[in-house]
Design a protein around this nucleic acid. Structure first.
Lengths: 335, 335
DNA sequence: AATTGTTATGTTACAGGTAACAATTAAAAT
DNA sequence: ATTTTAATTGTTACCTGTAACATAACAATT
């Protein structure tokens, strides 16, 4: 089943009685070889079935026309949209995306960065601002452009594109307080950096307005069912609660479903708020209050920045390495 | 910013006054070099920061310990779960996943297959049974194991793992008819093969029971909002409708939300049914009726089958190349 | 003292495509 | 007829790690 090795340029060349150089030329710029040769090589390729080989490209220091994209999770729709945004830019420019995920762990991220660099990607997009020391060292050694996305609270390695999670969370909390809520509880899952930043913003807003911050945190991964569990726990631990601010939409939607099951009126008895503005939440009844973040735009900008950096076109932006895309507060129908 | 080339084994070797062969030995099996050399090389690597290089591996015909996984879409949660299932098996076995998507297009799939093969993946998992001629030829030439997943209605290239979309759709439709629904409309989006197979099963069941199959099809990609639009169109085009069978959960959930907005009682006035059994649908109120498919299990089995084939352990299964994982009909609360 | 065994390291060759330069041939210009 | 130019193809060298084999140095055994 697997004996006959795939054919190389040499095999094609032998078949037509020429050198592989000529075959190489045929593939890269057909007009550089004679009409006659062209058709002979074409026939030989049809017969023998040539599959391109990336190995020599990597071996020489040629551009690989591939970029590495690292996201924490593939099940998280937020990143699916970011990826789409990236590829909208990089695909038309001829770059292949090498995608990997690291389950929110800096150690796994390190392994993934090594993996991507071992394939000589021309640039890297990371979804995190926290990295291991070796991750940073490898990136520096590789000497390729890097764009960090999603949060802009840490100084970037090179460029960063995202929004201020602390401020977003602060603003949403303030808006909820303005609307009259007094007992707002923050629900956090998967204790990654962004969850912590949002808690920080929430806490600051509550404290500033003389209210007591209260939170329920778990390191379990987010899911609808976890949202359901957390709202139950909230009602038990903090019976006065009139609003829950969830670290993401999945938790919030799960919480709403649970309230619907238990006949708790949303928002009359319980206001529920999420983060990011997922499609589900925005389409559902009641429409979920959420911090709407421009995921696709982040992807677009990350792609553009990376490509510009790869092409050394970034002297101008060099001073302005952090790009804030902002966010929008939507109080929806669930508050 | 990008002058200093990353260091090669030769650079490390030069730094400690040895040949790169010794450095190579140190990396692969440290005990093969002397204690003294070991610490010197280790120090040099720390200083110069060696990043592994896949190029020579690819160039020689060494196993790459990578597998290619092709999914139609990353935004589709179904495939996110399949991927998780695959990696649960392949990661611990030391294989890296090279992931690519092709937007339901056989032509793009062809490009992606070429891309993956150009990186010498050891095996391939495809989410489709329809491929271009060149895709098939390349796979044959490459001589690597291939597993096709999701549907088992077409004879596989080598192995296939999934379920019978026609039968699943037939069974669900029959169950709906049994429950008393008479005017069931099928809603289809993104007219890929599986949508068509499901329509086929639906049509067969309706016809068999003396009912008139009616469908609304669009080639737009599935989304919640499309589900909303389609239910509106259904009510206009087929006012008698008492049940809609959607080609996937996204459409169904969008339809339910729309009904909730328009005060159409689900299921009393309109029953709504989806396909796959997404978390959202299973958690929501009312719980969505759906064909529950074992996505993660498909991934697990695909991973296991592929690894076995890579290790040439599949003489036994060779006769039994199609694996049916089945499905479950859940009539939920939305019927 | 001569032989064998062991350990550590070195040498050579190879995988496949392409840049850079060289060579050949035919056609065009003097 | 001779030189110039253009078009086409060939040659060489290179990128990097490792398998396979070779060698060196020294310890252990007879």
């Amino acid at each position: 089943m697997k004996k006959n090795k795939r054919s190389s340029l040499q095999d094609i060349a032998d078949a037509v009685g020429m050198t592989k150089m000529t075959v190489s030329r045929y593939l890269k710029s057909p007009t550089k070889v004679s009409e006659d040769t062209r058709s002979k090589i074409s026939a030989a390729i049809d017969l023998l079935g040539y599959i391109p080989n990336k190995a020599p490209d990597l071996l020489s220091n040629a551009k690989s026309f591939s970029i590495g994209v690292l996201v924490p999770s593939l099940t998280n729709q937020v990143f699916a949209q970011v990826i789409r945004g990236i590829e909208e830019i990089t695909e038309p420019a001829g770059y292949q995306t090498m995608l990997a995920h690291y389950g929110y762990s800096p150690e796994i991220e390190e392994k993934r960065v090594e993996y991507l660099l071992s394939y000589h990607v021309d640039g890297l997009i990371l979804s995190e601002t926290i990295h291991t020391e070796r991750t940073r060292q490898m990136i520096k050694m590789a000497g390729i452009p890097v764009v960090e996305i999603m949060d802009i609270n840490h100084p970037p390695i090179q460029y960063s594109i995202g929004f201020d999670n602390i401020k977003a969370s602060f603003d949403m909390t303030s808006a909820l307080i303005d609307k009259g809520y007094k007992h707002i509880v923050y629900l956090g899952a998967r204790l990654d950096m962004r969850t912590k930043l949002k808690l920080q913003g929430y806490t600051a807003a509550m404290t500033k307005r003389g209210l007591t911050p209260q939170s329920i945190m778990t390191d379990k991964p987010s899911s609808y069912s976890l949202g359901a569990k957390l709202i139950v726990k909230t009602l038990k631990d903090y019976p006065d609660t009139d609003c829950v601010f969830c670290t993401n939409d999945d938790l919030a939607i799960g919480a709403i479903f649970e309230c619907q099951k238990s006949n708790i009126a949303v928002p009359e008895q319980m206001a529920i708020v999420g983060f990011h503005g997922h499609d589900v939440g925005q389409s559902m009844v009641p429409q979920l209050a959420s911090v709407i973040t421009p995921r696709q735009r982040i992807g677009n900008l990350a792609g553009e920045t990376l490509l510009s950096a790869i092409d050394n076109k970034l002297d101008i932006i060099a001073k302005d390495r952090v790009f804030d895309v902002g966010y929008k507060i939507n109080l929806g129908e669930s508050t």
